[in-house]
Amino acid sequence: MEHIATLQDAVTAFAPWMEPTDAELDAIEQEMPVILADVDLLDAQIITLDRTPTELDHQRIRRARRRALAARVALLNRTARSMPGGAA
């Protein structure tokens, strides 16, 4: 019989080099509005999965889609301004 070793130590052990860097945390912070807008869009879409969407549901999805797009545009504009020489 072959024994299978668990990888509990490998899964739960965190070395200091495995933590996110300050730059990675800053990038996540900058992308947070996009992430939250995408979550709102998914919530609006999930609501309609088990029923026939009403006009209010369609409006909610359109509004969430517009917010997600606006958040992405704002992130791209901030990123382009922070790059040397302007837009890429």
Rank of each mutant, 00 (worst) to 15 (best):
R66S: 12
A10S: 08
R67S: 01
I61Y: 01
E2G: 00
A23V: 04
N77L: 13
D50S: 15
D40C: 06
V39F: 04
D57G: 01
T79E: 09
R51A: 14
D50K: 11
A64V: 12
D43N: 14
A88K: 03
H3F: 12
A10H: 01
S82E: 13
L36G: 02
E19F: 13
A13R: 15
A88F: 09
T52Q: 14
R63N: 11
L75V: 10
Q8T: 07
R51F: 08
A15Y: 11
R72L: 14
A87D: 02
T54R: 10
T52V: 11
M1A: 09
L56R: 12
T12N: 09
T6M: 03
L25P: 00
D38K: 13
D40A: 14
A70I: 00
M32S: 11
E19S: 05
A71V: 02
A70W: 02
A15Q: 08
V34R: 07
R72V: 12
T79P: 02
T54P: 04
R78E: 07
I28T: 02
A13Y: 13
L56G: 12
P33R: 07
A44F: 03
N77E: 15
A10W: 06
L69Y: 12
E31C: 00
I46G: 00
L76T: 05
M1K: 05
P20Y: 09
L56E: 15
T54C: 02
D57Y: 03
A44S: 13
D57T: 02
I46M: 12
P33A: 09
T79H: 03
H3V: 09
T48A: 15
F14I: 15
V73T: 13
R78F: 00
R63D: 15
M1Q: 06
A68H: 09
P84H: 07
T21L: 01
P20E: 08
E55N: 08
T79M: 10
D38Y: 07
A23R: 08
L42G: 04
L42E: 02
R65W: 06
R78Q: 10
T48P: 01
L41P: 04
T52M: 07
E19C: 14
L76Q: 15
D38H: 08
D22P: 02
E24I: 06
I28C: 00
A5R: 14
L25I: 02
I4M: 04
D38A: 12
F14V: 15
R81C: 07
H58Y: 15
A64R: 07
R72K: 13
V11S: 07
L42V: 13
L7G: 06
Q8L: 14
A68P: 01
M1G: 14
V11W: 13
A44I: 00
A71I: 03
D22Q: 05
A70R: 10
D9N: 11
A5H: 15
P53M: 06
I46D: 04
E29H: 05
E2A: 06
L75F: 13
L42P: 00
D26F: 01
R62P: 00
E29S: 12
Q45W: 01
Q59A: 11
H58E: 13
